[in-house]
Design a protein around this nucleic acid. Structure first.
Length: 264
DNA sequence: CTGGGGATGGGGCCC
DNA sequence: CGGGCCCCATCCCCA
């Protein structure tokens, strides 16, 4: 099942860090994507198994998403007191958190990025709505739309998306408020670990090493993708030409560019 | 056009 | 219930 089936953002907003405005999600989206098929494919392994059932996950969401109003201005979110650049490294402090974090070397300034910038941010950015931890009902839309079946539903005040749990909604709200701000560039993120990963782009830290080559990555997912390049068997296959790809995105591109049909 | 790296978002799960 | 982490998805960019 698609992971972001409920909360999809426009491609542009996701990728384009326009710090001058808050990206927003789209209006209610409840697609049933052909997408799952792709997932299934992703699970196909042995070459012999590579069959024409390969999917063609067409991404239509983005095109359907229109920019929304920005309920909260960036100005109001960017903490005037963004921690000095020096505190940056404190972010990696989270590495020491649970241990599942990258085997990164100890960070110089262990501390509390999250408790610093994040909280200060929250204090500021959330001033309007007392702490994310206790989302005000008026915000969460705890104007709770009780659906007909009497099942509780929580609506986001910003985009009106609906969630079946308050926790999910709170998490979603963060994507609007972006409480985690990079002290180096000011970019904001919805979750601390997202910021953490971002910070690595500044520090150059690459805690995830490929066991097959000398490459290292800042993100585990990217290492995983990289590992595919070492694999003889690519996971994603074009059902038209049977060609296989290491990434779904490559398959997408291949198909979108018009698969010639014949195997190469 | 293809392949791959970099960056980032979000749901689910675990503690 | 909340925080943190995992995993997956996807886009952009460049060679």
């Amino acid at each position: 099942m698609p992971r972001s089936f409920l909360v999809r953002k426009s491609a542009g907003s996701r990728r384009r860090p326009n710090y001058s405005e808050l990206h927003d999600s789209s209006p209610e989206l409840t697609f049933q994507q052909p997408y799952d098929q792709a997932h299934l494919l992703a699970a196909i392994p042995p070459p012999e198994v590579l069959n024409p059932t390969a999917s063609l996950p067409t991404l239509i969401w983005d095109s359907l998403l229109a920019p929304q109003a920005q309920p909260i201005s960036w100005a109001s979110l960017l903490p005037q007191e963004i921690p000095k650049a020096g505190e940056l490294t404190s972010l990696s402090d989270e590495d020491s958190g649970k241990g599942s974090q990258p085997p990164s070397p100890p960070s110089p300034a262990p501390s509390s990025f999250s408790s610093t910038s994040a909280s200060s941010l929250e204090a500021e950015g959330y001033a309007a709505f007392p702490g994310l931890g206790q989302l005000p009902k008026q915000l969460t839309g705890l104007s709770v739309a009780k659906d007909p079946q009497s099942r509780k539903a929580f609506n986001c005040k910003y985009c009106n998306k609906e969630y079946i749990s308050l926790g999910a909604l709170k998490m979603h709200i963060r994507s609007h408020t972006l409480p985690c701000v990079c002290s180096t560039c000011g970019k904001a993120f919805s979750r601390p670990w997202l910021l953490q990963g971002h910070v690595r782009t500044h520090t150059g830290e690459k805690p995830f090493s490929c066991p097959h080559c000398s490459r290292a990555f800042a993100d585990r997912s990217n290492l995983r993708a990289h590992l595919q390049t070492h694999s003889d068997v690519k996971k994603y296959q074009c059902k038209t030409c049977s060609r296989t790809f290491s990434r779904m995105s490559l398959l997408h591109k291949h198909q979108e560019s018009g698969c010639s049909g014949g195997p190469r």
